[in-house]
Amino acid sequence: MAAIKRSAGLVVMRQFDGQWCCLVLRAYRNWDFPKGLPESGEELLHTALCETTEETGLSDLELPWGDDYRETAPYSKGKVARLYLALSSQGDVSLPVSAELGRPEHHEFRWVPIEEAEELLPARFWPILQWAQVVIGAGSN
């Protein structure tokens, strides 16, 4: 049995006009969260933060809900994505050029309500969106 190939990323949340929205990225026809593979020996939370900064330009990310995470079920030859919940209260998203690719990794970004994210993202992310919604709802007054 092949080893699990684990990536790490963030469900980045921000409020717009009092409504919570999450950041989704598009590469070709596929919508995703910012995430990537860890360097050898790298902690997955560190990977998640670094990959998000590399892919979006957002660097002032906070973890007000702690370092809890959820993982996708295995997909695409056994890959698993671990996602943490982060807050971006400031900063503009950019899609920087990847040194490896010579172009941005993604073609588009959107801040969308969780319901819209469910329409864009693959079904493997739906339980993670539901978890994020519960956590965000539990943390609001």
Rank of each mutant, 00 (worst) to 15 (best):
L23R: 02
A99R: 15
V97P: 07
L49K: 04
F125L: 05
S59P: 07
I128S: 04
L61M: 04
A2M: 10
W31K: 12
R6V: 15
D67S: 13
K35D: 11
A73S: 14
R82M: 11
P96Y: 06
S89E: 15
I4W: 10
Q130G: 06
C21D: 07
C22W: 00
L120K: 02
S7C: 03
K77I: 08
Y69Q: 01
E116A: 15
F33P: 09
E43W: 13
R70C: 09
P96V: 02
E39M: 12
L25G: 08
V80M: 01
R103P: 01
L44P: 06
G137H: 03
W20N: 03
H107G: 08
L101V: 03
L37Y: 14
A132Q: 01
W65P: 04
F109W: 15
H106W: 09
E42S: 08
V134W: 13
E118G: 07
R6L: 10
T56N: 07
A117K: 04
L23Y: 00
E115W: 05
P38C: 13
L44S: 07
S94L: 10
Y84L: 00
E119C: 09
Y75D: 05
S59K: 12
S40I: 12
A3C: 08
P122N: 05
Y28H: 14
T47L: 06
G139Y: 05
A117S: 01
L37V: 15
W20D: 05
L120Y: 02
A86C: 02
L37I: 12
V112P: 00
P127T: 02
H46P: 06
R124A: 03
A3N: 10
V135L: 08
L83H: 09
L63Y: 01
P104T: 01
R29V: 14
E62T: 08
R6T: 12
L87R: 15
Y28N: 15
A27I: 08
Q133I: 03
R124E: 06
T52C: 10
R26T: 02
H107A: 14
S7M: 03
G36P: 07
G18M: 00
E43Q: 13
G102R: 09
T56R: 05
R103H: 12
G36W: 05
L121C: 02
G18A: 06
G91Q: 07
A138R: 14
T47W: 05
T56S: 02
I128F: 05
A81I: 09
T52M: 04
L129V: 01
A132F: 00
E42Y: 04
L120W: 04
V134M: 13
N141F: 05
Y69I: 01
F109N: 11
W111I: 00
K5I: 13
W20K: 00
P34R: 12
P113G: 02
L129Y: 00
R103W: 07
I136N: 00
W31M: 11
E54G: 06
P74N: 06
L63S: 05
G36E: 11
G18W: 04
E105A: 14
K77C: 07
T52W: 03
A48S: 02
G66E: 03
S140N: 11
G9E: 01
K5A: 14
Q130L: 08
R82Q: 14
R82C: 11
V134R: 13
E116M: 10
E116T: 14
W65R: 05
